[in-house]
């Protein structure tokens, strides 16, 4: 069999094996690991949607946490005020995200790079303010409780069920992103990212495609936020700080810009990073003495890693893999 014919087969086999392992994982693990898995999957959905916006359409956003908050609050408010079921709240969250994405996207028609990042930062604070205002007005100063959703008459509860659900949603989002990127829209985004003026000269409707990128990305993000609300069973603005936005930006940088696989790697890395630091610190002598400093060490180490990737490895983990993978695999691809 020629090299070219074997590759897709191998790829499919590898992907199928990976999928099977991911599906069977919950049978063999502890609740703690399952929770980690769920966190990673949620982060994957958020990182994929940010990657779509920044890595493919070239539009920067520092307001990702604001969009996650919008989704979570849509779910929280609908459950609280109208006891709406799962089937209503999640689409509503996605729609709220899409509308908000339109709003986040409008400045992008005038602003570029730095200024766009700043405007999304401003919108983040505005969304968080509105959420806080709702909490105070309703007298829910600590946050909104969200009951576990009911699906086909069963209460969706426990790590295993959630893991499967999130895995399915994350896979669906990954598939949607992959198809989008390879479609006409995706190519238009790539052109806009490369050079706006040239893209416009080629007949691409720049404004429409920019807004579309914001709308799609924000809808996915808000969906992730809504799922997060159900998964945690609790919504509060405390969970959606600016730091969360930065973490998502760090995911796509650390993973590698312009690659969906990079978004997943980055989500994995950033989510597991604090646990890694914790484990590393606890192996040190006198570990109990550092217990109080755990949070700060995490913070500092995260900043350090972010700087490291930006300065020394701007291509991210995917770049590392591309450089280090076996020469035979390299030869097989253009």
């Amino acid at each position: 069999m020629s090299e070219a014919a074997r590759r897709p087969l191998l790829r499919t086999a590898l992907l199928a094996a990976a999928g099977l392992v991911l599906l069977l994982l919950p049978l063999a693990t502890t609740p703690l690991l399952l929770d980690l898995g769920c966190q990673v999957l949620l982060a994957c959905i958020g990182a994929l949607s940010l990657m779509l916006l920044t890595g493919f359409a070239g539009q920067v956003s520092l307001g990702h946490a604001g969009l996650l908050a919008a989704g979570a609050f849509t779910v929280g408010i609908l459950v609280k005020e109208a006891t709406a079921p799962f089937w209503v709240t999640l689409p509503a969250a996605a729609i709220a995200g899409a509308l908000l994405g339109l709003l986040f996207g409008l400045p992008s028609l005038r602003l570029r790079a730095l200024y766009l990042a700043v405007s999304s930062l401003a919108l983040h604070f505005i969304v968080i303010y509105l959420g806080g205002e709702y909490e105070t007005l309703r007298g829910l100063s600590t946050g909104i409780m969200v009951d576990p959703p009911r699906l086909f008459g069963h209460e969706l509860y426990g790590g295993r069920a959630w893991y499967i659900l999130l895995l399915v949603v994350a896979m669906a989002v990954l598939l949607a992103c992959r198809n989008l990127v390879r479609s006409r829209t995706g190519r238009a985004w790539a052109a806009i990212r490369a050079h706006e003026t040239v893209a416009a000269a080629l007949g691409i409707a720049v404004a429409r495609h920019k807004l579309l990128a914001f709308v799609i990305s924000s809808a996915f993000t808000a969906l992730a936020g809504g799922l997060f609300a159900y998964y945690r069973g609790f919504v509060s603005i405390e969970a959606f700080s600016l730091y969360l936005s930065i973490q998502y930006v760090a995911m796509i940088i650390i993973g590698g810009m312009g690659s969906l696989g990079g978004a997943i790697l980055g989500a994995l890395f950033v989510t597991l990073f604090p646990y890694g630091i914790e484990a590393a610190l606890s192996t040190l002598p006198h570990a109990d003495r550092y217990a109080g400093a755990m949070f700060a060490s995490n913070y500092a180490a995260f900043g350090l890693v972010m700087i490291f990737f930006l300065v020394f490895e701007p291509q991210g983990l995917i770049g590392l893999w591309r450089r280090w993978r076996p020469a035979s695999a390299k030869a097989g691809r253009p």
Binding site: N298, A301, G303, L310
Partner: peptide, 13 residues
């Protein structure tokens, strides 16, 4: 800009 954000997080820690 992103590097300065990283620096800010590092300094806070």
């Amino acid at each position: 800009v992103l590097t300065t954000i990283g620096l800010g997080i590092l300094l806070r820690g």
